[in-house]
Write a protein that binds this DNA or RNA. Structure first.
Lengths: 239, 239
DNA sequence: CGAACTGTTGAGAGGCTTCAAGCCTAGTGG
DNA sequence: CCACTAGGCTTGAAGCCTCTCAACAGTTCG
């Protein structure tokens, strides 16, 4: 953890067009010196599809920034069923809760497709928090965003029907991952995982999706999801 | 907002045994000078039972620390039904999300009984964040605690039955507000609000409570809730 | 090519909500 | 201080939504 410059260790992302550290809001706040200190002490990690990043109840240190790919963050309920809390993608941060509280992880994280993470060790992050308010503020804002989303989700799941929640979740995925020029959702997700996001069982989710297809709101070729009538979906979602 | 000492404005709480600023974890991290600056610029506010502190969609600035009483924090769903997100009590902070993001409030807060809050204006809080890492860290840890609780609640509400969630919520209230020597819960809460916490309708919550009474797990004299068999409640809650 | 996983539909059961009616209590005003 | 009234509490009945169980089709990947 010394501060001697070690050019060999200089990481690729800063120069690679596909995934640049500068794209991450928190890193924009760092000075050149601070950025160098981060780069000298951080590691780029590659994960295959379905590889576990960390597991509920385990100890892990530092922050993980998503440079590329998608990470599924979830909890296992008492009956062994997954509840998906979010899909983190490029620019998102995971693992900050354990870092700040020194507690064991309360969620699990798994690569949902080929994923590249940037791991910054605990000591470096804590240094940045103490010396760079802009970095800290961005982190706090990110936490606030997640808290707001959690509060909305709690209210929805407690009060809306499966049909309403499914419509809403599809629209959320659309906003987060986008659609192509044919209105095809840009994330491939299994029915089971969709159900685990919505908070229902696979069969119920499939029935609702079939309803949406029959009502010409969606097309469902293979595992793709194509939006046909976003306005009506919004009306159903009640947002 | 000048820094001239104004002894007249020195607030009571610091010396009143009932509610002392020193009891709030974040304030423990402040230097004497910082504490004085806070005191010179903050206001003690009293709220009657049912008084609104802030409303969803409104703008409010600064942090509210609970010195005494209980604050109900909730959201209104699409159908107008309340979802209670938490009961804040002595030592808790509310309103930090709007402060950090400069967005409108995404929840409402109401005094649940006679309540005393300590309001610290935005500028002062932001100064403290920038100059005192201990204060900032405590705030972040508080946010992490709420995020963890949100994640657990999402998983529970998505996967557990009303009966399980009701048992769990009673145990959470017991841990947060305590019981007296007769095992009586130290918060008086209406059935409707209990239902709004659990995420169900009043009638369903009442039916479950009646079951618990018939099974000798609870006694329900008037509006009091007396615990008779905490072990069995834990078994039902599945925790 | 076959095994394992994913997707789909049907039937049935049961948990939860809705609607309705009446009782109880806490707080208010005379 | 007491009567009154509004709001909180409770139970019943009916029906819908969602889950469970089961069977089978389609897909993916070693």
């Amino acid at each position: 953890m010394d501060t001697i410059v070690q050019p060999r260790k200089r990481v690729q992302p800063i120069i690679n067009g596909d995934y640049r550290l500068q794209d991450i809001p928190m890193f924009k706040k760092l000075s050149e010196d601070e950025m160098l200190r981060v780069e000298l002490n951080s590691v780029v990690k590659n994960y295959n599809k379905r590889a576990v990043i960390y597991r509920e109840g385990s100890r892990h240190s530092g922050l993980y920034f998503v440079l590329k790919g998608i990470v599924k963050v979830y909890k296992i309920g008492g009956n062994g069923k997954q509840q998906i809390l979010k899909f983190a993608q490029k620019g998102d941060v995971i693992g900050y809760r354990s870092l700040l509280t020194n507690e064991l992880a309360c969620t699990s994280a798994k690569a949902y497709e080929e994923t590249i993470l940037y791991h910054v060790p605990q000591q470096i992050v804590m240094e940045l928090f103490q010396q760079n308010w802009g970095f800290t503020h961005e982190t706090m804002k990110f936490m606030c965003k997640e808290l707001k989303e959690s509060n909305m989700f709690i209210t929805d799941i407690a009060q809306k029907s499966v049909r309403e929640r499914a419509a809403e979740m599809l629209l959320i995925l659309k906003d987060e991952f986008g659609i192509d020029s044919y209105n095809t959702l840009q994330i491939t997700i299994t029915r089971e995982d969709l159900a685990n996001m919505v908070g229902t069982v696979t069969e119920s989710l499939i029935r609702v999706m079939s309803e949406f297809r029959n009502e010409k709101l969606l097309e469902l070729p293979g595992r793709k999801i194509v939006f046909r009538d976003i306005a009506k979906l919004k009306a159903i979602a009640n947002i």
